[in-house]
Design a protein around this nucleic acid. Structure first.
Length: 305
DNA sequence: AAGCCGGGGAC
DNA sequence: GTCCCAGGCTT
């Protein structure tokens, strides 16, 4: 285990009672949404694809893209062999298209180094492109039934409220939070898988960021934040939400949308995306070319072949 | 630890 | 207009 993951034994992390854990699992059995990547027929590959698509992207927007994607590329080898331009078009407007590039790289590594099968261990998953700490744990748990501490934005928020009594997590995943997530994870493996799913769903449906429905929460009586009167977060931890309007990120998105719409696009047409500032378009196009999201052939730009 | 990377819907 | 969404990668 790496040093920064170690927890001081002198201050054991607070946790939840086993009764509270059971209440959340019971709640999940009744209220869980029916999502296609949760069906018994879902493959590890399908679950991995869903996790990548769901990174910073709401479920409702992922659903149709995932269905099309899995119908088209049901196995890693199928995606590995696809033209990258088609992969990026299928990604459509899910956002952060570098995820689509990494997903295809991921498929190629799985084909070339794992015999075409999604690896089942945390370490092997974490080594795949586009798979970080969260996704490796999620695939371990949800695709292979392994015991792993899953910590997405929902689980972090629920546990920070219920255990630490704060309205919302810090911007970065702190060692303190990590200790709470680990301490709360049930020892029993199958119970841990259910727990991860249940807390995540609770955060998505009840313990939401904006208007938590504490009245119908199975943790209400155990929740430190609720018991304290749901105090607002201190102003010391500012939101630092990223601006979008007028940024390079927005322009990159506009360029990508234009590239998806035709086999090739003249640079002159791309420059018209911001007639007042063609230098900005050129700068953004440059970063897209550097990222491998676009290709240039003379005056023509296209998605990568 | 901080900054960057899309896009859309809820408020 | 603000905030949020099953995060990851680079510096």
């Amino acid at each position: 285990m790496r040093y920064r993951h170690q927890v001081s034994l002198s201050s054991p992390a607070p946790s939840l009672t086993s009764a509270a854990v059971l209440r959340v699992c019971d709640w999940f059995a009744v209220h869980a949404r029916e999502l296609p990547w949760r069906e018994d027929t879902a493959t590890p590959w399908g679950i991995l694809v869903s996790e990548i698509m769901l990174q910073q992207t709401p479920v409702v927007r992922v659903l149709p893209r995932w269905q099309d994607w899995m119908r088209r590329w049901p196995r890693p080898a199928d995606l590995a062999a696809a033209p990258t331009a088609e992969v990026l078009r299928a990604w459509d407007r899910l956002g952060y298209p570098r995820r689509a590039l990494r997903l295809q790289e991921c498929a190629r590594v799985i084909r070339d180094e794992h015999g075409g099968e999604v690896p089942a261990t945390l370490e092997e998953l974490r080594a795949l492109p586009g798979i970080g700490e969260y996704t490796a744990a999620a695939v371990t748990a949800f695709a292979f039934g392994g015991r792993a501490a899953v910590a997405d934005t929902n689980i972090r928020r629920v546990l920070v409220r219920a255990v630490l009594g704060q309205e919302r997590p810090a911007p970065s995943y702190t060692a303190r939070e990590r200790a709470v997530v680990a301490a709360t994870l049930p020892e029993d493996t199958s119970r841990s898988v259910l727990w991860n799913q249940a807390v995540m769903e609770l955060g998505a449906l009840v313990c939401t960021a904006r208007s938590p429905q504490c009245g119908s929460c199975p943790l209400a009586s155990a929740c430190a934040w609720n018991r304290a009167g749901r105090p607002a977060a201190s102003a010391e931890t500012p939101r630092r939400v990223q601006r979008f309007e007028g940024t390079d990120r927005q322009m990159r998105g506009r360029i990508m949308a234009r590239l998806r719409s035709a086999p090739q696009v003249p640079i002159t047409m791309l420059l018209e995306l911001d007639p007042a500032d063609p230098a900005r378009v050129r700068r953004c196009l440059g970063t897209l070319l550097a990222d491998g999201l676009a290709e240039r052939d003379g005056d023509l730009v296209s998605l990568p072949s």
